[in-house]
């Protein structure tokens, strides 16, 4: 960026000074400095924060997914339990009648034979 060095009054312009300050960013450090920096810091740390955060985010994501899956499984388990309702249990046995799924009925599940208790 070229700006006039002098302003309208013949003074050095602030823009020109700011421009010279920006030129500092063109100065290159000695090549040996980079080599020394790489040698002095373990390779695992060279790709620091960004990678570390990515790694932590992945673990957090996996943990969150596991929690969701476990929660869904537990919720479905509760629903399944509720679907099987106890109809009659005169013999104090925990027999269940799965009214909605007749194919899954087993003899032990049906406990409707307590005639004495029926009215």
């Amino acid at each position: 960026m070229k700006t006039n060095a002098r302003d309208g009054h013949g003074d050095l312009s602030a823009d020109w000074v700011a421009g010279r300050l920006r030129e500092i960013s063109a100065i290159e450090p000695p090549r040996s400095l980079r080599d020394r920096l790489e040698a002095g810091i373990p390779a695992s740390a060279v790709r620091m924060p960004a990678t570390r955060w990515l790694w932590r985010a992945r673990w957090a994501g996996a943990a969150a997914a596991a929690i969701v899956i476990v929660s869904i499984a537990a919720w479905r388990g509760v629903l399944w339990e509720r679907r099987g309702s106890v109809a009659l249990d005169a013999n104090s046995r925990s027999g269940r009648a799965f009214a909605t799924d007749h194919n899954s009925l087993r003899p032990s599940d049906i406990n409707l034979c307590d005639i004495n208790g029926l009215r």
Binding site: S25, I27, P29, L33, R34, V46, M48, P49
Partner: peptide
């Protein structure tokens, strides 16, 4: 790397 990205500006 972080070194490549920032060592120049830190040095200057």
């Amino acid at each position: 790397s972080v070194i490549d990205a920032h060592y120049r500006s830190v040095y200057r």
